[in-house]
Design a protein around this nucleic acid. Sequence first.
DNA 1: CATGGAATTGGT
DNA 2: ACCAATTT
Length: 787
Amino acid sequence: MSASHPCQGASWRDRDRQRGKRHVKAACTRANCASLMELPRDLPLDGGGTVAHFPTSAPRIIIHLDLDAFYVGASRLRDPTLRGLPVGIKQKHILATVSYEARALGAKKLGKVMDSLRACPSMILVDGEDLTWFRIVSRRVFGLISKVCGAATPIEKLGMDELWLDVTQLIDGHLNSLPQADESGKRWFPLPSGSSAPSRRAGDSASCQGFSYGRDAVGHVSKFSAFEASGAHPTASMRFVVATHLAKHLLAMLDSTLGLSASAGVSTSKLLSKIVGGENKPAQQTLFAPIGGTLQQQAGIKARFVEAREIRALAGFGSVVANRIEERVRGLSHHEGRSESKTQLSQWHSVPPHAPEMSVEAEATAQSSTRRLSVAQVRSQITLSDMCKLFGTVQGPRLWPLLWGQDPSPVVPAPLFPATISIEDTFSPRGATQDAVERLVRSLLRRLENELRAASTESDPNSKGRAIPQVGLDHLKFRRVDRQAWSDSDYSNAPNPIVRYYELIEQDEAQDGARSSALGPWLRFPATLRVSIVTPASIADGTPVWKARNSKSSAMPVEIFEVERSFESRANALSKAVQSLEKALNPQRLPIRLLNLAAADLRERQPDRGLGSWLASRRAGKTPVEHEVDMASLSQSEASSIDLDIFSALPDDIQRELAAQYGLDLQQLQGARSDAHYSTDAAPSGASLQYDDDDNLQRDVQDRSGSAHCEVCQAPCLPFLLHDHETWQVSGLPEELRQMELEGLARVDEAFHVAAERKFSTTSPYESPVVQERFARTRSPSRKPNG
DNA sequence: CATGGAATTGGT
DNA sequence: ACCAATTT
C-alpha cells in the first residue's frame, strides 16, 4: 500500500495517458517475428536469456504434468472393468469429469448428469463425492514423480491432478557432467536415485535408472515455439531437448508403474508450461521453448504465444478476475447503452451436445469474437494501474505480467502435509441432524488418521528420495455396489443408468484391531479444531442475509491422538468439542445448511495436554506419545508394477470377469503373480475391492435404489437428484423458516425462491405436480422473480 | 451461467 | 482469531 509501489509510480501514470506511444519495439529476428511486438517499457521479465554463461543466465526449465481425466483414471485403477467404457464421475447432479470415451459420445465435463445421459445413455456413472481414493492415487503420483526426479527437484502441486516441476538443476547438472554419447549417438540420462522402474531382481539398483535420448526433441512442438527457427544457442536448445525426453520418461513411468495416463507441457515458466501442455491431450506432450535471441525478443515470442487466447486460459485468471476485467473493458468502450446485467444469460444452454469439438485455437477465436475477450484485447485496454485499481496492489501487479506471457513465480515445493484438512457437507432446509453431525465428525477423524498417521508397514530401506511419509491409506478396502438410478417402470422414457458406488468398508469397532495394527504413530498433530457453519440468515441485524458463514475454533482435544483408545471413544471426544463450538456459533439453533470441520495448525509434536488430563495420564502411567518417525519413502510394493498386484487383490469373481473380458488366462496370471511376489513384502499395494456376499445388504441396496422421497416435502424424487431437491425445493418449509416468514423476513424468502426457481428449471421434467403446486403456493407474492 | 469439495491468501 | 474472497 505504500506510495512507492510500482503501479503508482510516475512511469505508469504516463503510460496510462499516452498508451501505445511509449512502447518499445522488441527487436525482430527474421524467423520468428512476423509482426512487430510492442511491449510495455517496464514490463518485468521473468528471466531467461541466452546461454552465454550457461546455466546461470539460462531460462528455467519447467514441466507441467496433468493427469488425464484424473478421477476416471483413478477409478479404473481400483476397478479395471471400467477400462474402455464411457464413464462419468458424478458429484451431486453434475459430472466432475468424464472419460474420453464418453466425451466422444457427447458427454461434457462439468455438464449436468441428465444432459450427458441423453447424449450417452450407456455411460456408467461413478459416484465421485467421496474423495478418499482420489487422494490416495494423487499421493502416489506425487510420490512417484518426486522419487524419479530426486529430492532436490522442486515439485509444486495444484489440486489433486496437476503438478509443476522445476527441472532446471536436474537438467543442467546432467549437461554439465559431459555425458558421453554411445555409438548410435544416444546419451544416457542417469536419474538421481533409483527410479521406480520395477526392479525384479535384487541387486539391480540405482545404476541403471534413467533414460537414453537422442538429439531431437520428442513430442509436439508448439507452433509458437522459436525452438528451431531463431538460431538459439545449441546448448540452449539441448536443454529443452533433454527436457522433452525427461517429460516423456515421466509420462511413461506414470503409465507403466501406476497405470495412469497424463499429458505434459515443457517451457520456461509455470504459466507457459501449463498452457502449452493443454495443446495436445490426452497422453501427449508439447514443448514451447521461447529461447532464441535477446531477452526482448524472447519476451516478444512469449507475448505472441498468449495473445490470441482468452484470458481464462491463464492460470490465475479465474471467473471473478475474468469477469471483472471484461466488465471494465466493456465499460471503457461505452458506445453501448445496454445494461450489462445478466438478464438474458440463461439461454446459452442451446448448444447441442453433439457439436463437433473445435480446436483450442478455433474455439478461442470464436469466443473472443463474440463475448469472451482475448489476451490481446485486454492488453490493449487495460494498464497495470487499471489492474491495481481492479485487484489491489498485491494481485494487480502479480496478474498483469501474465498477460504478456511473463510469469516469474517460482515452483514452490509442496509441503509434506497440507496446512489444513477439512471436510464439509451441505444439508436440506431442515438443517443438519445430530446424526449427520456425528457422521461428519467420524469422517473427519477417519481422514485425519488416514492422512496423518504413518502406515505400519515397513518402509523401503533402499529409497533415498524425498521423504514422502507413507501414510496409513493403503489398507483401505472398498466394496463395489451398483444401483439403478431409478426403476424402469417409473420413467420409461428416461435413460436409466447404473450408478456405481465404492463404499469404504467400515473399519470401526468390529475391526478396530485390524485398523490399529495397520496404522502407525501420528506424523502430524493438528492443534486447532475449527467449525464453520452456514445458516439461512442471522436475525440480529435489520438486514437479514441469505448466507452467513461463521466459524469458531478451539484447541483440538488431545484424546483423538491416543491411539490405544477405541475409535469410538476418540470420535466422541471430537464430537464433544465440535458440539460446543457449534453451540457457541449457533445459539439460536437455526438450521445448519452447511457444516465444515477443519483440522488446522499441524504440529510435528503432540500439543501439550491441558493440566487436568496430563495429570490423569500420569496417574494412569502413560506418557504422551512421541516418536522419532522414520519418514519412509514409497515402499517397494508401491513402486513396483502394480497391475498384477491390483489384479491379485481383486476378489475372485472380478478376476474372472476381467480375464473373460480381456481373454486372459487366469491360471497363468495367478502363476505370474506368485512369481512377481517372490521378492519383498507380500502386502499388495492399492486398495482391494470386495464384493459383498451378504444377501441382506444387497437387498437393502436394491430397496433403496428404485425411488426416493424428499425428506422435506415427501415428493418422489430421483435418488441422485435428492440432494438438490431437498436443498432447493420450496415446499414444506421447515418450522424455522416458516417462522421467519411470518416475522416478515420476506427477503430471505425471496432469495430462497429465486434460487429455487433457477434450480427447478433444469430438473422440471421429473418434478411431481404436487411439488410444483406447492412451489407456486409458497412463492412470495410481493415481488415475484420475473418469469 | 452453475456445479461441489477443499485449499490458500489477504485483510481486519 | 476470524472471515471473506478466490481458484481449481
